[in-house]
Amino acid sequence: MRTQVTSVATVMGVSRIFKGKTGVVHALDNVSFDLKPGRTLALVGESGSGKTTAARVLLGLDTPNSGSIEILGRTLGLLKHEELRLLRREIQVVQQDPFSQLNRRHSVERIISGPLLAFNIGDKESRRDQVVELLKSVGLEKEHLRRRPHELSGGQCQRVAIARALALDPKIVVLDEAVSALDVSVRAQVLNLLRRIQEERGLTYLFITHDLGVAHYMADEIAVMFRGRIVERGNRDDVFNNSRHHYTVGLLSSVPLATPSATKRSREQVQALPSPGVDDACLYRSRCALGLGREDCKSTPLKITQGSETHSWLCHSPVEHG
């Protein structure tokens, strides 16, 4: 008997190593996560922590050195070219830069119908109808069909990118810093839009952001990345109200809130600029007030602690609450 499908995508023990001039970079180091149907997983972490690499591996744009990736029950590395092409229909991406991800010479109609053309879907007329429909669903009008990206605002470009991602009616949408370049008021509109579309279409999101507030608003589940590793993972409540990894706590307390009365929680405690601590078992050790003084954080390899069904972390001496 087959068990019920509980994930639309699974990333298992994936590592990706880049060899650069300055040495080897573990962009992904034994990373595992899964995407549940109709839900949102947020990947958060500072720049260089491996978020985009995780997205690229999942999208089949980059091949990991080890580990496996399964999308809708099919294993990525084992697919023939045509199978991979068909699978690509099911997983689409929206990126950060509203302008550069759209071809500046193409009209909005051409941009959004691009994926339909690539898969030979419909004729010219039915494609136009579909594009108008998609435009409406992202809050744009028929009058935008003829415009080119430079005639649109950043928020409108991002809506066009979203419409294009929806054109093939995918199951999964990867949003890589998709609202990071937008102003506060426009960002709010686009976040509302993304939640509405998700609900209407039962979409699954991998939502990548460095902004914890946005992750909190959008995600059911959050994975915190630090230098290629997922250091904490859990439901919204687990990660925000019961953070166990010292890095998660440091991140949260560094976010300035627009409430002047909010007394700042203790910040990341090591105020001096730390050295990277390359050889430590825990890569966060040099920034961790607790880990700095502990031998095991330096030399004992870390194992994932599964604190509850939903909540796990990678730390020898997690933050205690109570």
Partner: peptide, 11 residues
């Protein structure tokens, strides 16, 4: 309106 449209982890 600007304050209302913010998206931090307290909303």
């Amino acid at each position: 309106a600007l304050l209302d449209s913010r998206c931090d982890y307290t909303i």
